[in-house]
Design a protein around this nucleic acid. Structure first.
Ligand code: SF4
Ligand code: SF4
Lengths: 144, 144
DNA sequence: TTAAACTCGGATAAATTTGTCCTGTTTAAA
DNA sequence: TTTAAACAGGACAAATTTATCCGAGTTTAA
């Protein structure tokens, strides 16, 4: 569904948010450990998120990653996915035709577009905060 | 969403079905041309479908691929996807955790599992025949 | 001033997916 | 019996994704 890079970036962002809630920063090292992700690779995708304005990084001692209260309320999961995997997933044809076009539909169009749209709606309706509260309260998990 | 190999295999199967409806076989050459797919690679994935019992191949002059009337009615899109991409897509965690487990859910669990289930239901409820009639009648397309 | 704890970013490597090539085998018809 | 049209399948190549390595820059505190 999502690329590995995208999965890592979502897990990382959620973790960052739970720490930002209590005024802490998280280091890449901790992110990698607590989300069970490869450190250096996760560093790369986090840089993309920083450039995309989704999370903030602070260099130096006591540095790390953080996300503002407002950011975590307003940023949608769809933005993370778009920042890493691109908009493709929201628009692509289920059968791989060059462009999705309801005027000249592929055989799967109606059924596929419906689900793709549900996915889009879900991702656009879910904020980082939504995902982070459950983790903070110990109801959900980032590793298993 | 689906791998390229899977997209090719679905397009190929639908095309094969439209020909089988009128008692014809289709050659790999024609499949590649009419579905805008790389010939040799499509040949590979078709071999997987043959092994999976989804389509039948006939060697020699006037050979090609075909699919029985009953097969196209009974075979579900989910079976093609499973044959090429595996069952992963129906079971995998949206955030990439090792196994999907509602008892120890990832933060996206509820919302993701719902959509993943809709997708599964859709794929299981769609037969090759369903997809092929529209193409045969010129209402849907396999290239653009 | 120095050391330590951090992020940043380029280069490179490994793994996977996608794609091609070439040879062999089967089959029908000439 | 020969020939040509077709699938089968192994070996290899290209492209993409995933992952690692390492040196450089930044910041705080001792
Ligand atoms: S059918 Fe769905 S997937 Fe295929 S082209 Fe139309 S919208 Fe895209
Ligand atoms: S939340 Fe959804 S995706 Fe994550 S583990 Fe549970 S079922 Fe799988």
């Amino acid at each position: 569904m999502f690329s590995r890079a995208c999965e890592y970036s979502i897990r990382a962002t959620i973790l960052i948010a739970t720490h930002s809630m209590v005024g802490e920063r998280v280091s890449l090292k901790d992110i990698a450990r607590k989300t069970d992700s490869p450190l250096a690779f996760t560093g790369k995708v986090l840089q993309q998120l920083v450039k995309g304005g989704i999370v903030t990084s602070v260099q130096g001692v006591n540095g790390g990653f953080e996300i503002g209260q407002k950011q975590m309320e307003e940023t949608r999961l769809s933005q993370i996915v778009a920042a890493i995997d691109g908009e493709q997933i929201f628009r692509a044809c289920g059968l791989g035709l060059q462009a999705c076009n309801a005027k000249k539909p592929c055989p799967l169009h109606d059924k596929f577009a419906s689900i793709r749209n549900d996915l889009k709606t879900m991702l656009e309706g879910t904020s980082i905060l939504d995902l982070s509260t459950g983790l903070k309260d110990g109801l959900t998990f980032l590793q298993r």
